[in-house]
């Protein structure tokens, strides 16, 4: 069953910056989709657009079908009802997404009470369950955010995301600013919860290795577009788009000595979203760019079954058959 279907999504900020330029995504219940890309490529904007959380004055075109309903054309009251109950977000930086003056238990109960249907006592019981679920003792509900460690706080935000039994959870860099051990714990926790409750998960990160490890499918974004999409492991190990390849080879592979002697990075900076290069947005940084890349826009094409990439070097499978 298709849980989320994003069609031709465009987001333009009031300053004229085109942060997302025509993104199509689909996600089924129980599926885990990773979105990768460097800072400023539009990953977080995409996540916020799913729940219409962008600042006023931002232009959003296209459609976001969440469980068959278009979020972008919903009435305002319905949007508020869908927020958290339909789709919830694990924000980056758990440190700051918790309010320092409220106990964590009250903050987890906040969406439960806000969306109604229960008493304060029931909400408190549910909060205890949620905390135990993410591996914290229920008694910690009485703690204030500053009394918890970074990893515990991230667990709290995950418990909070699950509070209203959402269909979809969007995790925006859930493991940034955590050390590697805690990072692994948190990733296992999210994986376990998604499998157990049959949720859809969108995980956003710049760390391709983490996404390849956790997700089923992977979409690599560049300058507001998906430039490559496919099964996570294949995209990570055998990228077809030069940008995706540069991103995945930026992480040294353990057990592969040759990667140590061939340091590969990507020169240059991501393009300014209000002043994008002509043609393929990646061509000024691309090592294999052809003359036509500067003038012709490259769209996603089918490279192999289940795999798409937007590069001139990828020949469309369908056009040859």
């Amino acid at each position: 069953m298709t849980l989320l279907e994003v069609q031709d999504l465009h987001v333009t900020y009031p300053g004229g910056a085109a942060a997302v330029r025509g993104v199509d995504l689909t996600l089924a219940a129980g599926q885990k989709l990773g979105i990768a890309g460097e800072s400023g490529c539009g990953k977080s904007t995409l996540a916020l657009a799913l729940l219409r959380l962008l600042p006023a004055g931002t232009r959003i075109d296209g459609s976001v079908l969440l469980d068959g309903e278009d979020v972008l054309t919903m009435r305002w009251g319905r949007v508020r009802a869908v927020r958290w109950a339909g789709a919830s977000i694990v924000f980056q930086g758990a440190m700051h997404s918790l309010n320092a003056v409220h106990r964590i238990g009250d903050q987890i109960a906040e969406p439960i009470l806000l969306h109604g249907g229960t008493t304060a006592a029931a909400a408190r019981r549910r909060t205890g369950e949620l905390l135990e679920h993410v591996g914290l003792p229920a008694a910690r509900a009485r703690a204030y955010p500053h009394e918890l460690s970074g990893g515990q706080r991230q667990r709290v935000t995950i418990a909070m995301a699950l509070a209203c039994d959402p269909l979809l959870v969007v995790a925006d860099e859930p493991t940034t600013a955590l050390d590697v051990m805690i990072q692994a714990q948190i990733l296992r926790l999210i994986e376990g919860l998604v499998a157990e409750q049959d949720l859809g998960l969108i995980m956003i990160s710049h760390d391709l290795a983490v996404l390849a490890d956790t997700c089923d499918r992977l979409a690599v974004m560049y300058a507001g577009r998906v430039v490559e999409e496919g099964p996570a492991r294949e995209v990570h190990e055998n990228a077809r788009h030069p940008y995706a390849e540069a991103l995945s080879s930026a992480f040294p592979r353990i057990g592969d000595p040759s990667s140590r002697f061939a340091p590969r990075g990507l020169a240059g900076d991501p393009p300014d979203p209000s002043d994008l290069p002509s043609g393929c947005a990646f061509h000024p940084r691309c090592e294999v760019a052809l003359a036509e890349c500067a003038s012709e826009d490259q769209v996603l094409r089918e490279a192999e079954p289940e795999r798409r990439a937007a590069c001139v070097h990828v020949t469309d499978m369908r056009s040859h058959t």
Partner: peptide, 20 residues
């Protein structure tokens, strides 16, 4: 602060954000 964004994301209205 980011927790205000979170409060909006979890469906809180203006009154909820201002009072809570």
């Amino acid at each position: 602060r980011p927790y205000i964004e979170r409060a909006k994301a979890l469906g809180g209205g203006h009154w909820h954000i201002m009072s809570r």
